[in-house]
Design a binder for these strands. Structure first.
Lengths: 122, 122
DNA sequence: GGAACATCTGAACACTTGTACAGATGACCA
DNA sequence: TGGTCATCTGTACAAGTGTTCAGATGTTCC
């Protein structure tokens, strides 16, 4: 779309560039990666996830109470997280209980919080 | 702002709720967390970061060439990443060399890619 | 069956955000 | 010093996104 070719001609370190280009995630993988990160990049959803990290399992109402968010907003957020496979849901009577989908998500949340705490977000 | 009080009254598991509420990151910490995730949630920036993960260090032009992105766009993205402390920059002559800021970011990128690859993004 | 309840869904709005264009900076070299 | 080069910045527009309101599910209990 733009002057990408012009730029490619002026490559400084061609070896590094072609090496990095090969190591780059492909479009489908990159899409999944950014989808996941984008989901975690919203305060409402992040609050929900950290609430589930602490409580193991919660119903929608209790998630809303924990995160100080309207129940409708919570439900919308949970749908996105559920669709993406970040959380899993289980119906018990008329309530839906949510929990983090797997250990990777837990590690991701813990690692990032550690990172923030250690160097103050720098 | 909303019917949050009404919701709090109908809390199902009050013990879990108050426990999770205490474990929840505070607003400043949560802001840093979501800022970081949001930065990783854009394809252009993610490509840049994975390029740096593979190549250790690259100048703006080579980053643009690696990620197939216009140099202006790359520069804008790098500014955001630099301001947030995700990447660090070093000037050499008229070129700027960028690299990932620390090991936490590297681990975050690697862990997430692993996660995506293992269960196909589910 | 009907009422009360927890949760979900659809649509509309305000808001945020990424990208592209144009021009500015700062560094090198003749 | 003047010109070229790599990179940066400001601005504007299009596109994406979160929250809300209103109403629809599906479940329990009488």
């Amino acid at each position: 779309m733009t002057d990408l070719d012009a730029c490619a001609v002026q490559v400084v370190d061609a070896v590094k560039v072609s090496g990095a280009r090969r190591a780059l995630p492909g479009d489908p993988e990159l899409g999944k990666l950014t989808d996941l990160f984008r989901l975690l990049g919203d305060p409402t959803r992040a609050r929900i996830l950290y609430a589930l990290l602490a409580a193991e399992e919660l119903c929608v109402c209790d998630i809303a109470a924990t995160t100080h968010t309207a129940e409708t907003t919570t439900s919308h957020a949970l749908r996105l997280l559920r669709t993406a496979g970040v959380v899993s849901a289980q119906r018990v009577g008329r309530m839906m209980y949510y929990r983090l989908a797997d250990g990777h998500v837990r590690m991701l949340l813990e690692l990032t919080r550690e990172h923030i705490r250690e160097d103050g977000g720098r």
